[in-house]
Write a protein that binds this DNA or RNA. Structure first.
Length: 317
DNA sequence: TTAAGTCAAGCAAAT
DNA sequence: ATTTGCTTGACTTAA
């Protein structure tokens, strides 16, 4: 008996799909899946040949680890995963840097990335990157801006290969004041390739940029806003979480919005509310977010997949 | 095997 | 001046 099409079924599906897509960040605790790293000071002491072999091995292993972690996410019904920026260590380093196609097993690395992309696509595991703190598009130091662009373009290239649709960055520097700094940010964003720019998203932080501070950048560039509820509670910029949410949602257009959340390690009344707790306190999830029909929320918690599973299974989680 | 020292990279705020 | 925190301590070597 085929299911009847119609308003009732659509309403049921809307309810069904209204639950938040909770995302895992970078690492897992309860499976033997490890991403390797490398340091420049070590590899630079090796011969060119040994260095290439060493980095080649790490790239191969990390591409395999990505496949494994996506299978793992699928098995646990975790449908978003943030890929560590260090998946290809030193790739954009001025001395030790390399390109995948130049590695001895570059073809295999690329094939593994394609497999990873297929797993994510078939399992509906949304992929993102979060370039780390050294990527500052509006630094007052030109060399920092240039290396930031290089890193972002590289991550965009990997993102394109595996089907990741979000590269999340913070507002960055505030040198010269917020207005001046945001115009530098806009100017640099306009220099990015289409590949990087269509994936870029900017996130409010807990020191410098509130959600409202970033809105002019979103409006000027079309880059969407990732609202971090934890950061927002530290720096509200005068907006309620509901107002900030509405603004952020508007920047995503037809795309599924992407937000972040975590709980303070020492509670909201502790000395410093910024360090992250092992788990997400369900009370910290804005009620307002629950009504959003489609939404990805990365869980930034030290307990990794245990925290993601806990909030997914929490009452009204 | 373990422990100590090291590691490419930015920035702001607290101490 | 130094430390802390950020999505995450991991890597390397000496003992």
């Amino acid at each position: 008996m085929p299911k009847p099409r119609g308003k009732q079924r659509d309403a049921d599906e809307a309810v069904q799909h209204s639950s938040i897509r909770w995302g895992l960040c970078c690492l897992v605790l309860d499976a033997p899946i490890k991403f390797r790293a490398a340091t420049h000071s070590y590899v630079w002491r090796l011969s060119a040949e040994d260095r290439q072999a060493y980095l080649n091995g790490i790239a191969l292993e990390n591409a395999k680890a990505l496949i494994d972690v996506l299978h793992y996410c699928k098995a646990l019904d975790i449908r978003a995963f943030r890929i560590s920026s260090g998946i290809f260590p030193l790739a954009t380093h001025p001395l030790s840097g390399y390109r995948i196609e130049d590695l001895p097993d570059g073809d295999d690395v690329r094939r593994r990335l394609e497999v990873a992309g297929d797993i994510a696509a078939r399992g509906d595991v949304r992929l993102s990157f979060h370039p780390d703190q050294f990527v500052v598009l509006n630094s007052v130091r030109p060399e920092v801006v240039e290396s930031s662009i290089r890193e972002l373009e590289w991550q965009a290239e990997v993102a394109e290969m595996i089907g990741a649709d979000v590269l999340c960055l913070h507002g960055g520097s505030t040198q010269g004041g917020t207005e001046e700094a945001t115009s530098r940010l806009i100017a640099t964003i306009e220099r990015l390739s289409t590949r990087a720019r269509i994936r870029l998203a900017i996130e409010n932080d807990d020191r410098c940029y509130s959600a409202i501070d970033l809105l002019p950048v979103c409006l000027a560039t079309g880059v969407p806003l990732i609202l971090d509820a934890h950061h927002h509670r530290v720096i509200t910029g005068g907006l309620s979480i509901e107002e900030a949410t509405d603004w952020a949602l508007a920047t995503w257009g037809d795309r599924e919005p992407y937000f972040h959340i975590s709980s303070p390690r020492d509670g909201w009344k502790g000395n410093d509310p910024r360090p992250h707790a092992d788990y997400l306190d369900p009370h910290d999830v804005p009620e307002y977010w629950r009504a959003i029909p489609k939404l990805t929320v990365d869980v930034e918690a030290k307990a990794k997949e245990r925290a993601v599973l806990a909030i997914s299974r929490a009452p009204s989680g």
